[in-house]
Design a protein around this nucleic acid. Structure first.
Lengths: 229, 229
DNA sequence: TTCTGTGAACGGATTCACAGCA
DNA sequence: TGCTGTGAATCCGTTCACAGAA
């Protein structure tokens, strides 16, 4: 099919496909069916086949998909076959937590600079990075060819910083601030907002029948969390 | 309308409505139109009116919505007019960051217990909490009436911990582990997975035309980030 | 047989467009 | 005139169902 009108939800699912394929690969699997991928992700097999068909024909009828090959293709489609330099703005508690999160690097996302407007923080080191003032953003973004920024400033400062990032050439923002950013056409924003997720969860919980919440002996974990002898 | 088949996307938008209404309220606004709400959230006015119509008729024709009243209604609909006790499992870097995140408490989400299986961590204090072993989960959940858990354990442990949480009576999991959890009917899972979000962003960035990334003098921020005299 | 790839059918969310009320 | 509330129309993603290849 290879159309240009690929639904965004499809793109959002591809990283999950890649993740389970990695797992399957490390388990030594050579082939997987859409059925099996679906079971691991709670997605219907038809959905998976349709999603993949947007990009080409990667399976073999009667057999399934070659794990290594499909993973390779997905990484290429997603642009994961390279390193992506990121910058992070806002080195408060949240920013430091994101900086120290060990999950980015193995996937090729490297935070190459960190910024904060607090004079007490500027010049301090966080791991290998020296915190810089926001005035350095344009130069750094240009010099290092940064396209993605992580925004971990307080809500009140988010729009201002986003404007500066965009003026500097950033094309995508991973926004942790609980704010709807206004950005020009062509700039992408994705929000990470655990509080609003919790606030929607409570809708479903708010009048749950009150169950007897007595402790059953069977629930006490036995071997769980205790090393096997 | 008040139907029971309210689309989940609608529920996901309600917290955003509540957020901008709070802002409008603190700005002293008394009335807002669906138009204005839409502009602040990049949502069409029709969408907002339709969403709200699932729950009742809150607006006045020709005028708009009473900010205070609509906010009040939304908080009630979402179940935000009370405190929600949470527990957190997995006090690694990520878990500690989530624990120290100051955004939960003001919205009524209070982490009332933290668990980790590492014997070196058990007994240590984090703020007001003493880290407990997972074996304490069932008792704590039952005693405190906890319905929501935050899961910040390594991917390899996530399913096992989720099973224990669910057996203990937890009905919703905010899952930070990059794993698709298997849960029984009636248990809700929401994933927070910044890496997979980044991995989908790169799809749109991967063959962006290379612009001249020279630094324009106009981009150097002037007053920005410098206190007004 | 088995399992992919894909048009067609379906279903559900968004948008339209307008009646109705202030 | 201004803006809500809402059926109807539209749009778009998911699922179906089957042809086709191994």
């Amino acid at each position: 099919m290879r159309a240009e009108n690929i639904p965004e939800v499809v793109i959002l699912r591809l990283p999950h496909y890649a993740r389970v394929l990695s797992m399957a690969l490390s388990e030594g699997r050579e082939l997987v069916s859409s059925q099996e991928l679906g079971e691991r992700l709670h997605i219907t097999p038809a959905q998976i086949r349709k999603d993949l068909s947007y990009f080409g024909r990667f399976g073999r009828q009667g057999r399934g998909y070659n794990v290594r090959r499909l993973l390779q293709m997905l990484r290429q489609i997603l642009g994961l076959d390279r390193e992506w330099p990121l910058i992070l703005v806002g080195v408060g508690r949240l920013g430091r937590a994101v900086l120290s999160y060990p999950g980015f690097a193995p996937e090729g996302f490297r935070v190459v600079a960190a910024f904060d407007s607090d004079p007490d923080k500027i010049g301090r080191r966080i791991g290998p990075l020296v915190i810089q003032p926001p005035s350095q953003i344009p130069e750094t973004v240009a010099r290092l060819g940064v396209l993605i920024a992580i925004l971990t400033v307080p809500a009140a400062a988010a729009q201002e910083v986003a404007d500066l990032l965009i003026a500097s050439g950033v094309k995508a923002i991973l926004n942790y601030a609980p704010v709807t950013l206004k950005v020009p056409e062509g700039v992408l924003v994705r929000d990470i907002d655990p509080v609003s997720v919790l606030q929607s969860l409570t809708y479903y919980l708010k009048d749950l029948p009150i169950e007897p919440r007595t402790l059953q002996p069977s629930l006490t974990p036995g071997a769980l969390f205790r090393p096997e002898p």
